[in-house]
């Protein structure tokens, strides 16, 4: 069919694939065309959540199976990326690793600002991230899940606040406050990592 060329608006293309063709001749590309472009990023995100490559593979697999099964509940015209990330995240949170991670550190960290280390705005953090990407990775790994995931969605996935709000199912105000806390926590973590290296 003429519509399945690789244009940007995947939602629309996928949607038309579904709506406009008789069921028996539906091409199998439709879900695939919507979902596969997110594959690499979803896997990366899954690795950051699980901290384990095998578990990440399982999680991505589960996500795609669930997304496929629930595809009819996806509202065309809404954000597919937020939708599939939400599925992945929910699958993670109910997994053994996810349950364990959120049992020790609550997912909802709002109002716990006092627990964070006080961070001075020093140029150290700039220097160290310039000199060594590994140190940023380590600091990210050390963050509680809630901070890690929101930073990844914002900086790596480059989601808008609204997309993040849809993905994490939290209000916009919480997106902003959580992001700000996550950034503060990361700066604190970086300074700790930096200090460790200096010793």
């Amino acid at each position: 069919m003429v519509f399945f060329v690789g244009y940007g608006n995947k939602t629309l293309v996928g949607w038309f694939t579904l709506v406009c063709m008789p069921e028996e001749s539906l091409p199998s590309e439709s879900f695939e065309q919507l979902a596969m472009p997110h594959f690499e990023r979803l896997y990366n995100f899954a690795c950051w959540l699980t901290q384990d490559r095998q578990e990440a593979e399982d999680l991505v697999q589960e996500t795609y199976a669930k997304a496929l099964k629930g595809f009819s509940s996806f509202q065309p015209g809404t954000n597919f990326r937020a939708w599939i990330y939400k599925i992945l995240r929910n699958a993670f949170l109910t997994s053994r690793t996810g349950l364990k991670a959120t049992a020790t550190v609550p997912l909802d960290l709002e109002g716990e600002e006092e627990a964070l280390p006080v961070v001075k705005e020093t140029p150290e953090s700039i220097l160290l991230q310039r000199s060594d990407g590994q140190i940023v990775q380590q600091a990210l790994e050390q963050l509680p899940i809630a901070y890690r995931e929101i930073l990844l969605l914002c900086e790596v996935e480059e989601m808008s606040y609204q997309e993040i709000s849809a993905t994490l199912a939290i209000p916009m105000g919480t997106v902003m406050s959580r992001l700000s806390r996550a950034r503060k926590a990361l700066r604190g973590g970086l300074q700790q990592q930096f200090a460790k290296r200096m010793n």
Binding site: N44, R53, V136, L140
Partner: peptide
């Protein structure tokens, strides 16, 4: 830095 470090896997 987060962007670079975050695209790890």
């Amino acid at each position: 830095a987060i962007q670079v470090a975050g695209k790890r896997y």
